[in-house]
Design a protein around this nucleic acid. Structure first.
Lengths: 262, 262
DNA sequence: CTCCAGGTTGCACTATACGCAACGACTACG
DNA sequence: CGTAGTCGTTGCGTATAGTGCAACCTGGAG
């Protein structure tokens, strides 16, 4: 693992949080100023950081551009966009789109509620979301083939964030059975006590669940039963997005049955 | 300038475009496979790239998250968001927000038109926009203090993209005078022959022009006169955003006058 | 004018990233 | 079923590339 690149990465991270002076950068890395300077100059040439008039370094537009390029080329995101926005308008709640990518589930789109609670939600596009303590995580997990689910959960160390968290494999499996049977999942403040969600699965053309859409609200805005009242709309949205991906409902594949998976 | 970091940057760039195999990565850099592997492993540990099941490397969510963090912490973007969305709804056209950052003007938000032309527009959040061949560029340039304008233009090598481009300093200055006097700018296909824009300036609390908002359409959707018909809405939007930033209209500062700037 | 802090440059050194070669996993093909 | 070919991974000796140092520059404060 390259030391130089690790140092560069650390500086990019810091620059995203707040402007970084050269001296600060060298202290953070524990290296000489000249070393930090060379790293920052290299990053600057690629527009990964930008030098302000005050001589400090901040996050650069080059990285933003690359991120947008990567996000924009995701088919799912394009297909889902209009549906998500409609769901937001009709429910009034914040809408999330999360996708299973590799070993983690990542938010790839978010439509904020105009209500004041949007700013309080800790979610952010690109951020990985808890696999077992979120509605989108559970609904994806529940519909995955067993071996896949095992793979994802094998990395996990369970943590009890709140009193409602399913904080061990056994209780989670029970919850997942229920999720699988009814076809949607809730998050009853399982990661943040005041955040409620309802999520529905999105399937690709093979019938595989690859993503999930959810509506979210903090409890003072809407209780979990109030969110569940919007289930028809949510399920319609998920179905519509799945259809865009080529999924034909009632398809022969029933990956969630898995009588002898693995 | 650090060679290792430059190589890492190149691989990040490539991974944003399409999945990258190890062999491909090593060929791109002209280095041994083991070298490319170490770079990719370092990036992977930071979630800057992600390894797919097929063994290829793609753009990672870590970078997307950092970009969203950086974008989200921009005050201007937050203040402008609701206004941009309203402008889009009421005009039906694609809306852009561009900010002067350092030596370049960068798109920091974009609200796509639902019309099919949105996909044809080459703009992207994070991308730098031509300073002299765009409506947002010209409207910002026109209202900048002379020394600032000189600094920005000193880096520029003029290029005639289309027949309407202001492709030399003299003709651009004439155009800027007009822009400054009427308070808004157009782009009559000056960068891409079929893309039309109208832009208005956004001022901060000191009265300085720091950004611009624009509406854009391809010519088959709306001609320039048709876009100009939406000027009242556009100017209202720009004024509203400026107000959010603390600008009080009719302020004593008139930076655009600049009788003896510099 | 002097001092100080922060940033920049040139150079010698060695830690660090490199290429090599051998190995393992997998696939295609005879 | 065996063999050859492709791709990714590991360990190691080497030299290149990145590092720390010291001197220099710049701007602002006292």
């Amino acid at each position: 693992m390259s030391q130089t690149i690790q140092r560069a990465i650390e500086l990019i991270r810091r620059s995203a949080e707040h402007p970084l002076s050269l001296t600060e950068a060298s202290e953070v890395l524990g290296v000489h100023k000249s070393t930090a300077l060379r790293i920052l100059q290299t990053l600057e040439a690629a527009r990964f950081v930008r030098k302000t008039g005050a001589g400090t370094y901040v996050f650069g537009s080059g990285l933003i551009e690359l991120s947008e390029l990567a996000l924009g080329s995701m088919d799912l995101r394009q297909f889902a966009s209009a549906h998500l926005r409609r769901l937001q308008r009709e429910t009034g709640h914040t809408v999330h789109l999360a996708q299973l990518t590799g070993d983690e589930i990542v938010y790839i789109d978010k439509v904020d509620s105009p209500a004041f609670d949007a700013v309080k939600l800790p979610s952010r596009v690109g951020r990985a979301v808890s696999i077992y303590a979120s509605a989108v995580g559970k609904v994806i997990l529940a519909h995955l083939p067993r071996e896949e689910r095992d793979r994802l959960l094998s990395h996990v160390t369970f943590e009890r964030y709140t009193p409602t968290t399913f904080a061990d494999r056994a209780s989670l499996e029970l919850e997942l059975i229920q999720v699988r049977e009814r076809g949607w999942a809730t998050d009853n403040g399982e990661h943040d006590a005041y955040v409620m969600c309802v999520a529905a699965p999105i399937r690709d053309s093979r019938g595989q669940v690859i993503a999930a859409v959810s509506i979210t609200a903090i409890e003072v805005i809407a209780t979990l039963p109030q969110l569940e009242a919007r289930l028809p709309l949510l399920l319609d949205t998920a179905t519509a997005i799945s259809a865009e991906l080529g999924y034909t409902a009632g398809a022969p594949t029933r990956p969630e049955a898995e009588p002898a998976a693995g």
